[in-house]
Structures are given as structure tokens and as C-alpha cells.
Computed example of a mutant assay.
Amino acid sequence: MTHTPQHSPHHGHGGHHPGHSHGAHQARSDGGQAEILDLDAEVLAEHIASITAWLPLKDQPRHIVDLGCGTGAGTFALLERFPDAHITAVDTSAEHLKLLRGKACARGIQERVRTVQADLDHDDWPDLGQPDLVWASASMHHMANPERALRNVRELLAPGGLFAVVELAGVPRFLPAHAPENRPGLEERAHAATNSFHAERVPHRGADWGPMLAVAGFTVEDDRTLTVSVAGARSEAVGRYAYGILQRIRSVAAPALSPEDLTALDELLDTSSPNSLLLREDLSVRTERTVWAARRA
């Protein structure tokens, strides 16, 4: 699901956190963002699978559109969940779509995947067919005009089709509250230092999409919030995921942090330091992910 976003901080799934994306997926591509979207997919795979299993579908979808697909976290989860479906994966990033196609070929399912490069902030969307299911994970909050994008989805959906909007509550947290030992609470202060940046650039992050869906002509059939908590001990990918996201947070937060906090953050991000984030054994991924399942009213 990606989700967020990217990447100056913002995450994936497609995100687009500052790190994701979900990724998302309305951001300019870069190798670091693609890596974070892939790590998001790996670390949160169980949660993405639980959302695809929960979707209140009347029939098995045959055609799915993944809006803001990023490097394919949602795409491949949906292809696994619905083995008879084919997917149109849409993203603004040519690099992300190239990586997604490569993964599809490696899995031998390239015939089930069509990629479309498009900027979904444009009113004139490309022909995406008439899908039974539209999936948008960590991408809708990046739209400059989400109301228009929602109306476009409504026109896109087949009669009786389902629209699933998946959003993270915010950028994941990784460190325990008492860490690092010399600057407890550093992570929360770094996040707070990015608030004005995100409020200006991604004002719909963390929004309640229910009312906006209703205005756009949808009926929300159900919604669900999942608490995400993944212990770092379960996967070394958690450390790399934390490192990538905190790197991006630093790029935005630095001017607002105290010299002491900035020094402590740089020490966490110094891979040669004995206090490197990658060496910590107390990391975990903590966030919330909400999904709204809607049909045309």
C-alpha cells in the first residue's frame, strides 16, 4: 500500500512518506525513494495482505487499477490475492514503473500487468479501462486537487465496482521514547520540525477521506484502521527502512532542530558510528493505516 511518501520528507506506498510511499507516487523518482517503497512493501507485507483480504467485494475482480502504484507493493499483493485478475498500474514515475515491470517479469506474471505513466493531477486521465476495483494506497493525499481525482475515479469504476483508499496516519516511528540515550524523544522532535513543511505541501495527509468520498459521489461501505507494530528483531529490513526515512526527515527538519538534536540525529545516521541506527536492536515500525471501501452512490 504503499503509501507514501516522496521524498523530501513527505511517504508510500506507493507511498510517499518521507520516506513513502506506500508508496505513492506523485513525487519525482530517485533511487532512494524506490528503495524505501520496496522496504515499505517488505516490512508491511502482512498488513497489506490483511487489507486485500478484508475488502468487501461482491465478486472476484477481473480488472484492477492501482493508482500511484510506486514500485508495486499493492500491485503484487492484489495479484496474489486475486489470481484471475489483471492490473493496470499507474504512476507518474517512469523509473518506478520500470522497476515494477522488472518484478513482474521475474515472477513470470508480466502478462497480467499493464503499466501506464500518467500525472493524475491532470484532469485528462489516460484510458484505464473500466475496472472492478480501484486501489489507491498512500497516493490520494499527494493530489493537488483530490476532489477532482475522486470524481475521475467515480467515472472510471465499473457499475458495482469498489474503490479502496488506503492511507497512513503519518510517517512511521521507529525509536523507543527514551532513545537515543543522550537525547531522549529526538524522533518526535524531528517529526514536529517537519510539520509546517508537510502542512504546506501535503495538506491532505492524515485526512478523513469519508466526507470527501461522499461529496465526490461515493457511498463508504466500510472503513477500518489497522495498528501497525512490527518489531525490528523480525527483519533487518526494519533498520534500513528506519534509516531511509530518518535521512529524509533530517533533510527537512535540520533548520528547526537544536544543534544538540542535529548532532544526535547525525550520529544515528552515521553508519560508521557505534551508535548507528542500523546497529540498534530496539527498533520497531509503529504507525496506523486506514482503509475506506466505497462504491458509486
Rank of each mutant, 00 (worst) to 15 (best):
R183E: 09
S93C: 08
A94W: 00
V166P: 04
V166S: 11
T227G: 15
C69P: 03
A256R: 14
R114H: 01
A24G: 14
V116P: 08
G32H: 07
L44G: 11
D132Q: 07
R107C: 11
A294E: 06
T2Q: 12
L156K: 03
R151I: 12
A104W: 00
A34E: 07
N195F: 13
S273G: 06
I109Y: 00
A214Q: 11
S93H: 10
D84W: 05
A177T: 12
G160I: 01
D223Q: 15
N145P: 04
W125Y: 02
L186S: 06
L279C: 09
G74A: 10
P18A: 15
V202T: 11
R296M: 09
N182F: 02
P146L: 06
I51F: 02
P146D: 01
L150G: 00
H25V: 14
G12H: 12
P159Y: 04
A199T: 07
A199M: 11
R81M: 03
R151P: 04
E35A: 15
L269M: 04
A136G: 06
P255M: 09
D84A: 15
L278Y: 02
A164F: 10
P9R: 12
W135Y: 10
L268A: 01
A192Y: 02
E188R: 13
P159E: 08
L44W: 00
R101S: 04
L277Q: 01
T225H: 02
A138N: 12
A237H: 04
D132P: 02
L283D: 02
E111D: 08
H141K: 05
R189N: 11
N152W: 08
H3K: 10
A89V: 04
G102D: 05
K103C: 06
S229F: 13
P203L: 08
S284Q: 06
D132S: 09
H7I: 14
A144S: 14
H191T: 08
N195G: 10
S139I: 05
G31N: 13
L37G: 15
S272C: 12
L100K: 09
I109S: 03
H191I: 08
A94P: 06
L162W: 05
H25F: 13
D282Y: 00
Q110E: 07
A89N: 04
T194N: 04
V165H: 01
V285A: 10
L277R: 06
R250Q: 03
E95F: 14
S8L: 15
V230L: 05
A237G: 02
E281I: 10
G23Y: 05
T287V: 02
L213K: 01
E46V: 13
D91P: 09
R183A: 15
V285P: 09
W125R: 03
E221Y: 01
E200V: 12
A49I: 11
A136Y: 13
L150A: 00
V285N: 05
T71M: 09
S137K: 01
E188M: 05
T115D: 00
H11P: 14
G244I: 10
